[in-house]
Design a protein around this nucleic acid. Sequence first.
DNA 1: CTTAATTTCCCATGCTATCCCGAAAATGCG
DNA 2: CGCATTTTCGGGATAGCATGGGAAATTAAG
Lengths: 154, 154
Amino acid sequence: MFLSSHESGVDAKKRVSIPASFRRALAGEDSVFVWPSLDKNCLEGGGDRLVARFQNAIMRLKPMDQRREALSYAIFGRGRSYKFDDGGRIVMDAELLDFAGITDKALFVGLGDRFQIWAPQDHQPRLSELQNLARDSMDLLDPFDDEPEALHPR
Amino acid sequence: MFLSSHESGVDAKKRVSIPASFRRALAGEDSVFVWPSLDKNCLEGGGDRLVARFQNAIMRLKPMDQRREALSYAIFGRGRSYKFDDGGRIVMDAELLDFAGITDKALFVGLGDRFQIWAPQDHQPRLSELQNLARDSMDLLDPFDDEPEALHPR
DNA sequence: CTTAATTTCCCATGCTATCCCGAAAATGCG
DNA sequence: CGCATTTTCGGGATAGCATGGGAAATTAAG
């Protein structure tokens, strides 16, 4: 599970360290899949599991459904799978970096099943709005059918 | 899996380099199958697996079903299987190149289980529409019945 | 049958990405 | 606070890739 946020440097060869905790979340996989976000100017990333989910969802659409090609292109046509080097870095494409406006710093934001990669200056203005929306959405966090916790566990 | 997009040159002998990552996606196969798209003016390509899928789907149709002959012709009758040379190139037919309007540049677009080959100038105008449709179809990618990820894998 | 044109195969080369090693920085631990 | 481990980051060596050209083999034309 991708947790917390980490800022990583981008060197002259466009190499970026994937935060160690994110690599651990990938549980043994030696690569990570990265694609441009469909609705924000950041990148998104995840592991094999997430890619398989996308693949399944897309395959469920009929071949002539225009949304099938659109999603295939947006995710697979523009995304890339990166293998880590021995230091846990990937070498990113100029196209993806440009899409997100990333130059020398990349901000990794964990979102549970996936993560985002932002140019730090683009993410910072979003913070207060996100926080307000989260506060107003608190009630969505309550369980509906979970059984109450025991007073004294075990 | 065919990922990302690559532009490749077409030389005077009609030789085209298949992107190395696509060749890797073909996992040891020494050839690739290419056919004209059924609904767009581009070519499509894939490996043995995809051809077998088409073959199975077509075989399920009754021999007298006119659609069987139509699909057989459109895919197998007009398509071609190309073997790579030692540099990973194929020599394309004038008919297929003409169909897609390809002259000196060919744009390879990965779509997961297959790829497209476009004349770059024909693909470029499609981008914004594809991207908008993908954004509006995002919700199709959501899992319906996937179990949550473990906090600490392993 | 001879010659010309085309196609196939093979090698050469500049370029880029990948791998490998190690230093610096950060983190955790006693 | 100091040491050990993990993580990040820089640079050089190496291998792989895209592409061009030429010789051999095949096909077509005269």
